[in-house]
Amino acid sequence: MSSPTVRPLALDLVHGALGFAFVSVAAFSVWAFAAKAFKNFGGELGMYAAIAAVFLGLSGLLLSPLAGGMGRFYKAFLPAFLLYSLVWCIAWFGLKGRTGEWVGAAAGCLVFAWLSMKLLGSTRGWIAAAVALFVLHTAGYFAGDWAMYDYWLKKPAFHDLAPADKAHAALMGKLSWGLCYGLGFGAGIGWVFNRARVGA
């Protein structure tokens, strides 16, 4: 059986970034628009599960060419993203704060890169791919953090806003985080899947 056609790395980076940005904004919309609903329906963990479901459900529709088809994409992405999410949540709930975020990003990117490449047929160069994923993912994550807390919710100006303006700023902050996170992580996914296809 022949390997899927290898596309240029730059194309996969752009495809991954733009496609996953759309998916991520949709997923972060759960947090932005429905966070209060989860207070009595699974709490923070339930909200994370709903967000993960949006990520899993939409990613294949937009990113399947990265793997050469929907079946191949989900074969690799579903278990890799679930394990990444589990590792990130363990780090976040266990360590909290910046430590949890950094540990979750590092460990999550390592397992995502290795497992997805393994399931796509080649782990050749997986460490380099994991490093690229970590850099792109983490740049997007912390750019989103900055966009939310240092731009939209910047203190003390935020406290002087009217309630409706505060709600708007909070909404835009969450969606901005989703956009930045999706661009960074998506570019990293494009890199990982391209390297797996090159080595297959």
Results as ranks from 00 to 15, higher is better:
V25C: 13
G68R: 02
G94S: 06
I90P: 00
Y74H: 12
L83Q: 00
A26I: 13
I51Q: 04
L56P: 05
F93T: 05
F81N: 04
A107Q: 10
H15C: 07
A35G: 10
G104A: 03
L13R: 11
G57S: 07
L63W: 00
G57D: 07
G16D: 04
A76Q: 06
N40I: 09
L66C: 10
A91E: 01
G104F: 00
G57K: 11
A26L: 15
G69W: 03
N40V: 09
A32P: 04
A35Q: 15
K75C: 06
L66G: 06
G43P: 04
K75S: 06
M70F: 12
D12H: 01
G108A: 03
G97V: 03
Y84K: 08
V87K: 00
Y84W: 10
A80L: 11
A91K: 01
A21T: 05
S29Y: 02
G57M: 08
G60C: 14
L66M: 14
G42Y: 04
L58T: 03
K39Q: 14
A67N: 08
T99C: 08
L18G: 10
W88Q: 05
A106N: 04
F41K: 08
A76R: 02
G97R: 11
V25Q: 14
T99E: 03
K36F: 12
E44H: 09
F77T: 06
P65C: 08
K36V: 08
N40H: 13
V23A: 02
K36W: 11
G16V: 04
R72E: 03
R98F: 14
L58H: 05
G100W: 03
